[in-house]
C-alpha cells in the first residue's frame, strides 16, 4: 500500500511565522517522510497547531517555504487535494453524517457521483458509524462527531492526514475509538501527522516525534529514542511533567 505515488516527503525550509511582532514559529527546517506516524509534541503555546496549519497550507509562512516533493508531479491544486485535516473541535455541516462525507468527496472531485455514496458508507462503517449514516451530523455525540470527522478525512484517501489534538475533549472510551481509527488509516497507507498533549497517546501512536518549544524545533527523533533518551533538557523536563516555559 505504501508503494503508491505520493506527494511526500514534506520539507520545511526555515519556515517562520510571525504576527504582531511575535515569532510564533521560528525557522523550522525538517523533512518528513511517508513511512511512519509522526507526532508533534511540546508544551502549551509551543506552536504545534500552527505548525500543522502551515504544513497543510491553511496558514502561509511569513518566511521560508513548505514544499511537497510530489508537488511537481501532481500540480499545486492536486497537492492540496491529497491532504486532509481533522481539527480539535470537529466542524460538521448541518446535514446528515453521510452527506458530510459525500460533500467532501464531491469537492475533491476524484470520484463520480455514483461512487461517492458507497465510499462514504464504507468510511462510516470503518469508524463504526454505519448505523447513524442518515442522522444529522450535529446531533451526534462528541465522540461520534470526531469519528465522523475522521471518516470524512479518511474517505478522501489522502496521502497525508493531519490531526490536531483529535481527542482533546473526549472521554477515554471515545479516545480509544479514535486511536483505532488512526491506526487503521495508517495501515491503509495514509501518512499520519498529529499533535497531542496526551503523552500516553503519544507513546501509543508515535513512531517519530517532532518536539517543539517556543516555536523552535528542538528534536526530530524516532519515538523510542525520544521517550527513553531525550536529547534536550526541555524535552526531558516535558517528559517528566515539569512546567516548561
Amino acid at each position: 500500500m505504501h508503494a503508491r505515488a505520493t506527494i511526500l516527503p514534506l520539507s520545511l525550509d526555515r519556515v517562520t511565522y510571525a504576527r504582531g511582532g511575535e515569532t510564533l514559529i521560528d525557522g523550522i527546517s525538517v523533512t518528513i517522510g511517508s513511512s511512519s506516524r509522526t507526532v508533534v509534541l511540546g508544551p502549551n503555546g509551543a506552536g504545534k497547531s500552527l505548525l500543522l496549519r502551515l504544513c497543510h497550507g491553511l496558514v502561509a509562512p511569513t518566511d521560508g517555504a513548505v514544499r511537497w516533493a510530489g508537488a511537481d508531479a501532481f500540480g499545486r491544486r492536486d497537492t492540496a487535494g491529497r491532504q486532509a485535516m481533522v481539527f480539535q473541535r470537529p466542524v460538521l455541516l448541518r446535514r446528515s453524517a453521510l452527506a458530510n462525507i459525500t460533500y467532501a468527496l464531491a469537492l475533491q472531485g476524484r470520484l463520480e457521483r455514483g461512487e461517492r455514496d458507497a465510499r462514504a458508507r464504507e468510511a462510516l462503517a470503518s469508524v463504526g458509524l454505519a448505523h447513524v449514516a442518515e442522522r444529522p451530523a450535529r446531533v451526534l455525540s462528541g465522540g461520534e462527531q470526531q469519528r465522523l470527522a475522521i471518516a470524512r478525512a479518511a474517505a478522501l484517501e489522502p496521502d497525508v492526514l493531519f490531526l490536531d489534538e483529535p481527542t482533546a475533549s473526549l472521554d477515554p472510551g471515545a479516545s480509544r475509538a479514535i486511536e483505532d481509527a488512526i491506526r487503521a488509516i495508517d495501515a491503509a497507507g495514509t501518512k499520519i501527522i498529529m499533535t497531542t498533549h496526551d503523552l500516553g497517546q503519544a507513546r501509543r501512536l508515535a513512531e517519530e516525534v517532532l518536539f517543539l518549544c517556543r516555536g523552535r524545533l528542538m528534536e526530530h527523533t524516532p519515538a523510542g529514542e525520544f521517550f527513553e533518551h531525550p536529547r534536550t533538557p526541555q524535552a526531558a523536563a516535558f517528559l517528566r511533567g515539569d512546567l516548561v516555559a
Binding site: R53, H56, L58, A80, G81, Q83, A84, M85, F87, V91, L93, Y103, A104, L107, Q108
Partner: peptide
Amino acid sequence: EYCEQLTSLGAGRLR
C-alpha cells in the same frame, strides 16, 4: 466557524 474546515476540504470562497 467553517473557514478552516472548508478550506481544508478544498472549497474556495465562491464554492
